[in-house]
Design a protein around this nucleic acid. Structure first.
Lengths: 339, 339
DNA sequence: CTTTTCTACTTAAACACTTAAGTAGAGTCG
DNA sequence: CGACTCTACTTAAGTGTTTAAGTAGAAAAG
């Protein structure tokens, strides 16, 4: 067990006090360039790394941020979103020597508790809030406890927490516009968890677009994003009296599940039914027919969120920023509406 | 900004010293049951949580473990394995009030550096080592630095690090046996990253099984687990002179990609070609035909690994244990070999 | 030449725990 | 009854950093 070098070791070797070493190492004024270089050189030579415990105790940042994911395991496994999002977050964090604490919890209350605990234990400098649901109290909780947080979603009025979001409404509109341009007049939407804020935003945008175009019908069915519920919803839609000629899905798993249901009911895609997936991944590419999807740069999204977090904890910047809207990638699952 | 309660606060209210409070809170002897209960009650009442920083500084555990994933983002996004594995790990860790530090790095060196840093910064009690490659030096690195680690894979000779692994060889054998029973004599294998230890174990088992059955041909092609390379490998195999009648893949993404290639080459599945996926997920279920796969309880695997880690750091237990081998789930992509 | 200001430090307290060592008082034993 | 052992504590040192406050010496200002 090797003894960890401390700033005291550096101080001894440099012939200065630990205070001076601390200032030098943290890039603060109060040391001459010559001394600073000497200290930096010694630190590098003996492989010094700060003890975050000591730092944290002394009231400084712990250089760690938390991410809590409130979804059941089986859903997570199939959703490419989170893993890509995490990759993006990580790319920025690790470049800035900041750790990511991850917790997967089953529900909202557990998520709240996890944040409280992490903060009480001084484990994190801030938290990334994803999957905002409609009446989500987390922004208020963070504000109340004074926890720096970045909202992955629309900014909350009255709270100056930074937010990073993508314009879901515009994305949904572009999909509807596209389908209408192909001649579809009966378009359905299979939505994700109805409690999530962005699901509600998308559904509202869908209704608005449908009204604007004067569509014949525009039913919406909510699901939990799983293959099972996607299948059920699709079956219900395709066996209804005036069945839609196009269906949009809130993720890729359900859109692919729809392909199976169409096959089962002998409804050909895209001749009799057009299908659009709300997330893009290899899953859409690998199908027959390949699935038209709304492609987003999720890794980049994660990176932006992480950067917002770092800005927030380093200088308190709380800007709301929008990431580019997804672009529709037309593939073989969409075509002109049957007349 | 609320003032955090400390053990000093508890001590004052209980009328004892901080030392006594510490003993009581940590379940150590030296306090009477009455005093202990009183202290516990006060702690709960004022919402005390330990400062891991102070704990860590004083030399105790930090109640956090690290997991480093060395894979590029685009691969991770599509692989259901890691997210499920993490869910499993998390379920055990969070039940034991232990945090998970996650880092996604591009290569081996970065992984080593990340471990060193975390350890030097006293951020973790131990580390989970996944994706062991053939000449992996990480077990030795951990032993050398005295870092508690659990190996997700075969135990290393000479090092007493606990290991949790699944018998890949037996799984591969069962697949070959199954295909041979269906009459296949030309079976190919599309492997994952050749540098990974379990890929080598599987390939060796595949060769052994092929020899045992006296197969006509048993080619192996290595890939990086992506859809692209799976497609290429499949195309190469299916356009060769004595093309295989069955192909096994090291994950599900590539097996599904194979379906596309077979379609493209007008080779019907399963009549002319049987396909087996090495991992099971909704992806396999959603296809036409649905894909026969080797199903494993990945969430359970993660849970076992996490438990081994907790055992290791709490009482130094270093047992090697095996998780159940995957079971073959026959679906529509496999059938009797064409004669 | 004295006073002031600045630079480049040093000193020491604070952070919230853990734990080895010490101790007072009660009970046990011969 | 004195010596010993327990129990249930207390005391205080130690952990590695940050940072406010202090200081010595040099340079600048008057």
């Amino acid at each position: 067990m090797v003894k960890r070098p401390t700033i005291a070791d550096i101080a001894t070797r440099a012939g200065v006090s630990t205070g001076a070493v601390s200032y030098a190492l943290n890039g603060r004024p109060g040391v001459s360039p010559a001394t600073r270089d000497k200290i930096l050189a010694i630190a590098a030579e003996i492989g010094w790394r700060p003890s975050i415990a000591a730092r944290s105790l002394a009231g400084a940042r712990v250089h760690a941020v938390g991410l809590i994911i409130a979804r059941p395991a089986r859903v997570l496994g199939m959703e490419p979103f989170f893993m890509q999002f995490i990759s993006g977050v990580e790319s920025v964090l690790s470049a800035n020597r900041t750790a990511l604490l991850l917790q997967v919890v089953p529900d909202h209350d557990a998520a709240d508790e996890a944040v409280r605990f992490w903060w009480a234990e001084r484990r994190i400098d801030g938290v990334l809030v994803t999957d905002l649901w409609a009446k989500d109290q987390r922004p208020e909780l963070l504000a109340e406890l004074g926890i720096p947080g970045v909202i992955v979603g629309r900014p909350r009025d009255g709270l100056d927490l930074p937010a990073v979001w993508s314009d879901d409404a515009a994305a949904v509109e572009s999909v509807v516009d596209y389908l209408v341009a192909l001649g579809h007049r009966r378009i359905a939407r299979v939505a994700g968890l109805p409690s999530l804020e962005h699901t509600q935003v998308r559904t509202a945008a869908f209704h608005a677009a449908a009204e604007r175009h004067g569509l014949e019908s525009a039913p919406v069915i909510s699901t939990d994003y799983t293959w099972e519920e996607g299948t059920q919803a699709t079956r219900k839609l395709l066996t209804s009296i005036d069945r839609p000629t196009a269906i949009t899905y809130d993720n890729d798993v359900m859109a692919v599940a729809a392909l199976s249901v169409a096959h089962e009911l002998a409804i050909s895609v895209p001749e009799q039914l057009s299908i659009v997936a709300g997330d893009d991944s290899q899953l859409c590419l690998v199908q027959h027919p390949s699935v038209t999807a709304l492609a987003r740069d999720i890794v980049g999204y994660g990176a932006r969120v992480a950067q917002a977090m770092l800005d927030l904890v380093s200088d308190g910047t709380t800007t709301a920023q929008q990431v580019p809207t997804g672009t529709l990638v037309p593939r073989a699952s969409t075509a002109a509406a049957p007349h």
